[in-house]
Amino acid sequence: MAKPDAESGRKRDAATPRERYRAQVRTEIKDHAWEQIATAGASALSLNAIAKQMGVSGPALYRYFAGRDELITELIRDGYRSLADTLRTAAAGGADLSGLAHALRGWALEDPHRYFLLYGTPVPGYHAPDDTTAISAEIMATLLDACTALTQAAPAAPFAAHLAEHRDWAGDHPAPPAALHLAMSFWTRMHGVLSLELAGHFTGMRFDPAQLFAAELDDLLRGRG
């Protein structure tokens, strides 16, 4: 058996620091991107502006991201992975659908700009690649598991039957129609309250948004969608 080439071995060893450096630079770019989003919104995101903040030329950053859209895609993927991990960890700890709802709210409040990049107004001119849908499907799968546990013997309402015929959003999950209905109701109602709260629409109304969220959740669970 031939011995490994010494030069190849040195190149492999040298690649690890380069990969670490590349990852560090990409992280720094993303940190600056989040700062821009917080200040001016995702539609104003600019690699050239980030390069100026970092003290490098604009073209230098294109070695790390091909353009604005690739950077936005990476931020969206990071966001979906973060939420998927949050819900998966909660479920692994025994959280039911109510527990997942509060985990979702905690995640959203932790970083509203991240939340709105995923679930707010689409960025003008940006189209997410198909593989981002696969990551978001992991989030829905965790919710569908919890919804299925609550609706095993529940009859299917007309809208549930409709969802059963249009279930691409559920991926390969074998959830019954009633669980699909509950998951969709959960998704629309919880995100509805969260979006209004994070956008500041409850400011000045003198009530606690956390209690509204809990009341909507309780109503949803009592009515099972």
Results as ranks from 00 to 15, higher is better:
A90L: 07
A108Q: 04
A141P: 12
D145N: 11
E138D: 09
L100M: 04
A146R: 15
A149G: 03
H127V: 15
H127I: 14
L143V: 14
C147G: 10
L109S: 02
D96K: 03
H127A: 14
V123I: 14
S82L: 03
H127N: 04
G93P: 10
S98Q: 13
R88F: 06
D145I: 07
A137W: 02
P124K: 12
L117F: 13
P112D: 05
E110Y: 06
A101S: 08
H102A: 01
A134F: 09
G120N: 09
H113M: 12
D85G: 03
P112A: 09
A95Q: 11
A92F: 05
L144W: 03
H127C: 10
D145S: 10
I135L: 14
D131R: 13
G125D: 08
R114Q: 15
F116R: 05
A149T: 13
A141I: 11
G99P: 11
T132V: 15
A146V: 12
P129K: 03
T86C: 11
D85V: 11
P124Q: 08
L144P: 00
H102S: 04
D85Y: 04
T132L: 12
E138V: 08
P129T: 03
D111N: 15
R114N: 14
L87N: 00
E138T: 14
D96P: 10
L109A: 12
P124A: 03
D145E: 06
L109Y: 10
R88L: 09
A134G: 02
F116T: 02
L118P: 02
A128R: 13
A103N: 00
A108T: 05
L118T: 03
T133H: 15
E138C: 02
G93A: 07
L83K: 12
L118W: 04
G94Q: 13
L118M: 13
D96G: 14
P124D: 07
Y115M: 05
Y119T: 01
T142I: 15
V123G: 03
R114V: 14
L100Q: 06
L87Y: 04
A91P: 12
C147P: 02
M140Y: 00
Y126K: 01
H102V: 04
G120L: 05
A149K: 12
A101E: 02
H102Y: 11
P112H: 09
Y115T: 02
D131H: 12
A103V: 01
D111W: 08
Y126G: 01
R114K: 15
A141M: 07
S136A: 15
I139K: 00
L144I: 01
S82Y: 05
G120I: 06
A128M: 13
A134V: 12
S82M: 06
S136Q: 15
A137L: 05
Y119P: 01
A95N: 13
D85L: 10
S136T: 09
D111Y: 00
L97I: 14
A95W: 13
A92K: 14
H113C: 04
G125V: 09
G94E: 10
A101W: 02
A101C: 06
A149H: 11
T86Y: 02
S98N: 11
S82D: 15
P112W: 09
